[in-house]
Computed example of a mutant assay.
Amino acid sequence: MKKYLIIGAGFSGSVIAEQLARNGNSHVTVLDERETIGGNCYSERDPETGVMVHKYGPHTFHTNDKEVWQYIQQFCEMVPFVNRIKTVHHGQVYSLPINLHTINQFFKKSFSPSEAVEFVNAVADRSIVEAQNFEEQALKFIGRDLYEAFFYGYTKKQWGCEPRELSASILKRLPVRFNYNDNYYTSCFQGMPRDGYTAIFEKMLDSPYIDVQLSTKFDSTWEKSTYDHIFYTGPIDSFFNYKFGRLSYRTVYFEKNIAIGDYQGNAIINYPDQDVDCTRIHEHKHFTPWEQHEKTVYFKEFSKETEENDIPFYPKRLKKDMITLEKYLEEAKLNPLITFAGRLGTYRYMDMHQVIKEALDIAKMHL
Rank of each mutant, 00 (worst) to 15 (best):
G143F: 02
K320N: 06
Q158R: 13
E294M: 12
T296N: 04
M204W: 00
Y184Q: 07
G245C: 11
D321C: 07
E255D: 14
K285R: 11
S43A: 09
M352N: 09
A124S: 14
Y242N: 15
D219S: 14
G38P: 06
G91Q: 09
H101G: 07
F239Q: 02
Y298W: 06
I142C: 08
N121Y: 09
S187I: 02
G245F: 13
L5R: 04
D145P: 05
I170L: 12
Q274V: 12
D310K: 13
D361I: 13
E223N: 14
I323W: 02
A332Y: 05
S303K: 04
I236A: 03
Y328L: 11
F287I: 08
Q73D: 04
N241M: 10
D219L: 11
V28N: 04
A122N: 09
E77V: 13
K256L: 03
G13W: 01
S248R: 14
A131L: 09
A17G: 10
G345F: 02
P47Y: 11
G234Y: 01
K109Y: 01
S110W: 04
Y227W: 14
F254E: 08
D145F: 00
N104R: 07
I72N: 05
R22A: 15
L325W: 03
N83E: 12
L146F: 05
F178L: 03
V51K: 14
I258P: 00
D65R: 15
G245V: 10
Y253D: 00
C278L: 11
F240A: 12
K2Y: 11
F240K: 11
I356D: 01
T339Q: 02
G196L: 06
G13E: 01
A341Q: 08
Q132L: 13
E135V: 07
I6Q: 06
F239P: 00
L20R: 01
F178A: 04
F75W: 04
K333R: 10
Y347S: 03
L214A: 08
Y349D: 02
E291A: 09
L146G: 01
A124V: 08
N23G: 03
F141M: 07
S167P: 04
K224R: 11
K333E: 02
I260C: 15
T216D: 09
I7V: 15
N83P: 02
Q19G: 02
